[in-house]
Amino acid sequence: MALSLAISPCPNDTFVFHALVHGLVPGAPPVDVTYADVDVTNTAAEKGEYDLVKVSYAALPWLLDKYELLPCGGALGRGCGPLVVTQPGRTSIEGATVAIPGERTTAYLLFRHWAAEKSAKIEVAPFHEIMPGVAAGRFDAGLVIHEARFTYQRHGLTALADLGEWWEAKTGLPIPLGAILARRGVVDPAAAAEWIRASVRHAWGNPEASRDYVLSHAQEMERDVVDQHIALYVNEFTADLGDEGHAAVEALLSANAS
């Protein structure tokens, strides 16, 4: 019986899960994969819709009754945080309309703490609509994630703040972005972690094997952007959170509770 898996179409997820999705991990079950933005998977996970699912770390408080956090496969690191982007000349978000990719995303959790004393109107939008919306004046500012770190200047935008740098300066810890969860009572978390680690090892050992698959799902098709994305978001924490990764997750969840 196939396991249902939901991940984003972003290069880091397709790179990491290529081997698992394509039956290249010995002993792993077949996988029925769905690709969706993280705000969609956060909501779906609340309903227990998938066996394995990529979600925002900030959404964990609403999900851990149904799911167990896996120590691998996700996105956590340094220099990879969300950006607040605006048209040139804006120096503050005070009174601004800010587009965000979801209310339970790690990006928005960080934004709330960074902007705690500022007054701004929030609108949720699919992340691929945020930069064009800011460039067109639909929004005054946007909270962007994923490959937008590498492409916002193409839209004529400037980065007002790097929330990853802000988090690292505040805590000294890497930033937890996306987590992989296994549905309780359905998936053996230890086995799932081994399948995912095997998929990660296969990706690192055979980087060209997933190239066509990754590019077919990437919203930014340029190879250099895809390569930068993978290099930034697929790192030692993808293979194992370790003590530092777990400490970062605990710090983020403490911020969520405050």
Rank of each mutant, 00 (worst) to 15 (best):
D162L: 10
G172Y: 12
G172D: 10
S216I: 05
V187E: 13
A193Q: 12
P176L: 07
T151A: 14
I196M: 06
R197V: 13
E165L: 14
E222W: 05
S210E: 05
L215Y: 00
S216M: 03
S210L: 06
G156P: 03
E222V: 01
P174M: 09
R211D: 12
I175L: 15
A218L: 04
K170Y: 05
A198K: 07
A192M: 06
S210N: 02
A209D: 14
L173A: 08
H217A: 09
A161T: 05
R197C: 08
R149K: 14
L177W: 01
L163G: 12
P174A: 11
T158M: 08
A191K: 14
E220Y: 15
W195D: 08
S210W: 07
L177Y: 08
G178W: 02
I175M: 11
M221Q: 15
A159Y: 03
G156C: 10
M221H: 15
R201S: 14
E220S: 12
E168W: 10
W195A: 07
S216P: 01
R184S: 07
R184N: 05
L215V: 03
Q219W: 15
A209Q: 09
G156H: 10
L163P: 12
E168P: 05
G178C: 06
G178Q: 07
A193W: 04
I196G: 06
K170G: 03
N206F: 14
G178K: 00
Q153T: 14
I196E: 07
G178E: 13
T171V: 03
P174H: 08
A159R: 09
A159T: 05
T171E: 03
G164K: 05
A190N: 01
Q153H: 14
Y213Q: 03
E194G: 01
P174K: 05
N206E: 14
P207K: 02
W195F: 13
G178V: 03
L215A: 15
A192H: 09
L163I: 12
M221K: 14
E222M: 06
A218C: 02
A192S: 09
S199P: 04
V200I: 15
L157G: 04
L173G: 07
H217F: 13
E165N: 06
E168T: 13
Y213D: 07
F150R: 01
A182C: 03
A169H: 07
W204N: 06
T151I: 13
Q153A: 15
E168L: 11
D188G: 04
E208N: 02
A190I: 08
R211I: 00
R184Y: 03
M221I: 09
R183S: 03
E208I: 00
R183A: 11
R211P: 00
K170F: 04
Q153N: 02
G178M: 02
R154G: 13
L160C: 11
R197A: 11
S199N: 06
P176T: 10
G172W: 12
A218Q: 01
E208W: 02
W167N: 05
L181E: 08
I175P: 00
W195C: 05
P174C: 09
A192E: 10
R149V: 10
H217V: 00
L181R: 04
R211N: 01
